[in-house]
Design a protein around this nucleic acid. Sequence first.
DNA 1: TTAATTGTTCAAGTTAACTTGAGGTCAAGC
DNA 2: GCTTGACCTCAAGTTAACTTGAACAATTAA
Lengths: 150, 150
Amino acid sequence: MAHPVLTIGQISTRTGLAPSAIRFYEEVGLVRAIRTEAGQRRFRRSDIRRLSFVIAAQGFGLTLGEIREMLSKLPDERTPTKSDWTRISRRFRARVDDEITRLQSLRDRLDGCIGCGCLSLKSCRLYNPDDTAATRGSGPRYVMGDNPET
Amino acid sequence: MAHPVLTIGQISTRTGLAPSAIRFYEEVGLVRAIRTEAGQRRFRRSDIRRLSFVIAAQGFGLTLGEIREMLSKLPDERTPTKSDWTRISRRFRARVDDEITRLQSLRDRLDGCIGCGCLSLKSCRLYNPDDTAATRGSGPRYVMGDNPET
DNA sequence: TTAATTGTTCAAGTTAACTTGAGGTCAAGC
DNA sequence: GCTTGACCTCAAGTTAACTTGAACAATTAA
């Protein structure tokens, strides 16, 4: 093998992540680096995949905590195999599916509002209480308006 | 009319937003309050709808800046009519559609990776360069891995 | 061998979207 | 007319996800 282990700079160019981000990811437990005698980080090739997964999951909207959660399903002792990754990807896919569903239902409600003019009706709820937890924020937010003066 | 104008507390209970959030939204220009002689805020009924839109758009993932952008299309002088809102909602729907499309393509690529095992091939790009700008972060991030030891 | 490059730590700064707290005012009910 | 609850401002704190900078060590290329 040309490069049994990689430096942080090499990982950086391969993933597109800034070295500072990679260090930060190590700090929060998303990757683990081996250290040389002198204290420099060395990464395994498989960490490229790991970090790429972080990027993908994050672009999808997961927090680093959630991503760490998912990655915790990978074996710690050995290099993850293809089937390890397939398992994780399947879980990830399920989350993507859920999000697509959520957005489709948002779109439907939006269509309802646009089409039937319920924007001006008490009965229009762009946020219905049965919706799954919102990404951010807390407390009940449900009514898309009220009977306006207009 | 029972309440020609509403206090911040009333707006708060109607929207589910904390008063501090409403004040903050005023500060960043998402709503505008009238002031009483004594300096207290008074809102129009139509602001409930406005703030509800903020909540909806935010739950979808738009930043407050983007939301302000969209809301800037509403008339400033008069109370927005139903057709004003319909126009905005249509634009919003287009954004939702785009996001659904983006996620579907992510899902497809994910399926490819899961199905064909390309997770272990150089050719697998979970992030392809032609993708539209990611929500967060900068710099190129494109490779989902590399030929691993495994 | 020496200079340039790349790496290290640690503390502090950044942005978004708010919340919290202090200290004070206003409005409503009894 | 006074107490209570709602409201005000302004400064500072909070969380996520990093980046930046200072001061220094290790590696590599000429």
